[in-house]
């Protein structure tokens, strides 16, 4: 018996054969924030053959409350999350091939990574990237596991091409103003519970126990002691552009992506979201004020102070981030607030 994984091999759902399979698989984790770091740690400890983790962000002090791979030292060194994650994951398990990428998870980047991937774990903080993952999943026939959380509320759903509905079936359009941890807060038990569901599903997929894979959509609220599990068969949408018969994979098209542009000669980045549509500036202003942000505005725009940057948001979702020329940083700030 391989001593290191002996307790996992003892579990009847895995066994020696399952452990062998886990050893030969490749998991792609998109995001190295709260969900990403927790998923990566569990799968690294479980002895997955190869783990690729991609993230565009840096470790900040406010991450430490819930992002389990990082320490105060990583904050003071301002390490990219992917780099800090890689360092810790290697110390945990030198058997696992860890590949960490400091990059934005664009369609191009993900399409390059996907070839030998067995399952993708969603650890992003916005629906735009999730829709890209969803299209990649359908196009390359690779399952992915949706996970998300805000406050004490969390959810997970396993998306298996050809078997379950996909995220585009469920949402039809991207919610422009989803709740994020930067607007609704988050406690770490919620994160961990989403991770529990995601990693359990990942292990089932890695050992190819397709019978065991959950077909229901789980959501829960740990503070309010709620847990529901929804049957999703009826959610499958025949006309879905991501998984239907006449599919076009719309989110792999550059036209449908959030565009960020450095405005010439000004220390400012413009963000133009993919699905232009009116947002309620009034509701957003109330929300941001209650969170302690400095907000000014008029019926046409809002101006929000965020540390050294200032973001001006227009009714159509377009925004200017003043005080930076870094496209990726600007997009991160934007999606933190607008989901």
């Amino acid at each position: 018996m391989n001593e290191r994984y002996s307790r996992q091999i003892l579990f009847s759902g895995i066994g020696r054969e399952g452990q062998e399979k886990i050893r030969n698989k490749h998991v792609l984790i998109i995001g190295a924030g709260a969900l990403g770091s927790g998923n990566a740690e569990i799968l690294t400890r479980a002895g997955v053959g190869k783990i690729t983790i991609i993230d565009r962000d840096y470790v900040e002090l406010s991450n430490l409350q819930r992002q389990q791979l990082y320490t105060e030292e990583d904050v003071s060194e301002k390490l990219p999350k992917a780099a800090a994650a890689e360092k810790r994951l290697r110390a945990i398990n030198s058997d696992v091939e860890i590949r960490a990428l400091v990059d934005d998870a664009t369609p191009e980047v993900l399409e390059e990574l996907i070839s030998d991937v067995d399952v993708m774990i969603d650890a992003t903080d916005n629906f735009e990237t999730r829709m890209v993952i969803n299209d990649i999943s359908q196009k390359y026939n690779v399952p992915w596991i949706y996970g998300a959380c805000v406050g004490s509320f969390g959810m997970s759903f396993s998306i298996i091409p050809g078997k379950t509905p996909c995220l585009n079936c469920l949402l039809r359009t991207i919610p422009l103003q989803g709740m994020t941890c930067d607007t609704g807060g988050i406690i770490s038990p919620t994160v961990q519970m989403v991770i529990s569901h995601q990693t359990a599903e990942a292990l089932k997929i890695l050992v190819e126990d397709w019978e065991a894979v959950r077909t229901s959509f789980v959501s829960f609220d740990l503070w309010r002691n709620q847990y529901t599990s929804l049957k999703m068969g009826k959610a499958k949408f025949a006309g879905c552009l991501s998984c239907g018969e006449d599919r076009t994979y719309p989110y792999l098209d550059r036209e449908n992506m959030t565009k960020s542009t450095v405005l010439c000669g000004r220390d400012t980045v413009q963000i133009r979201p993919s699905n232009l549509g009116k947002i309620s500036l009034e509701r957003l202003a109330t929300q941001l004020l209650s969170l302690g942000y400095k907000v000014k505005g008029n019926p046409y725009l809002l101006s929000v102070e965020m540390g050294s940057e200032r973001m001006v948001i227009f009714q159509d979702g377009r925004a200017l981030i003043h005080g930076t020329k870094d496209l990726i940083h600007a997009k991160t700030i934007y999606q933190r607030i607008l989901g």
Binding site: L35, T124, N126, G154, G178, T180
Partner: peptide, 10 residues
């Protein structure tokens, strides 16, 4: 009936 808002945090 139950209403469940998909959230985007993570």
């Amino acid at each position: 009936i139950a209403f469940i808002p998909p959230v985007s945090g993570g």
